[in-house]
Amino acid sequence: MLKIRNLTKVFNIGTINEQMVLSNLNLHIREGDFVTLIGGNGAGKSTLLNIIAGVYMPEEGEILLAGEDITKMPEYKRAAFLGRVFQDPLMGTAADMEIIENLAIANRRGKRRGLSWGVTREEKTKFQEALKILGLGLENRLNDKVGLLSGGQRQALALLMATIQRPKLLLLDEHTAALDPKTAVKVLELTQELVEKNRLTTLMVTHNMKDAIKYGNRLIMMNKGEIVYDVSGEEKKNLKVTDLLEKFGSFSDRMLLA
């Protein structure tokens, strides 16, 4: 589904702060994979996600999504194929707009927008059904402004918005890091549910090694812009946090701080 070849990203080229964030990175994610991505601060996880999403352009390399070269495609265009949820719950939703308006905008991801009405009647029922899955009672609050919701509710809504139009690839950038532990578990379970229900190909960055082991069928560890560990299947299922720590210890003790 996603093929990344020889990807290199350098920040602040030509200055004293020049920094190679990704170096010659290769990655192939198969359709239906649920990949968890871990690594210490500065490993390049978020940069990788942002390059896939088109926020940054790489210096070298190419990105193919479902066979199509999207390396130079602007962010808003490739959004047609990508569902994204950000670390900051405020980033994925429009606070001053109603829940139903947010969903309607998400429902038009990758479609041509015209001068027909922004929310249709059929959509209203569709959204109500979809919101019921969240189990937060939001189906009865369609006309509430999103700004009235809690961080966890907003993140759950952002997740729904990212998947309401089935994306070819779902990108989750530490989307539970800003939530309290209890809410984080709920959002993660919801993530699992939505991914399974829609059979989504997913790339999830996390700082939590337990979560990285618990969720998904494949685990990737990054360090200094390179993939240093890649396990899947049975081997991943039997992983323990201590294994990961040991693995990571050979690269840096910083991971313990993360």
Binding site: F86, T93, A94, M97, A106, R109, G110, G118, A162
Partner: peptide
């Protein structure tokens, strides 16, 4: 609606295409 979303949260508007 997309113009309003752009003013409210540009990041979200772009992520939504």
């Amino acid at each position: 609606a997309l113009i309003r979303a752009t003013g409210n949260n540009e990041n979200m508007a772009r992520a939504m295409g």
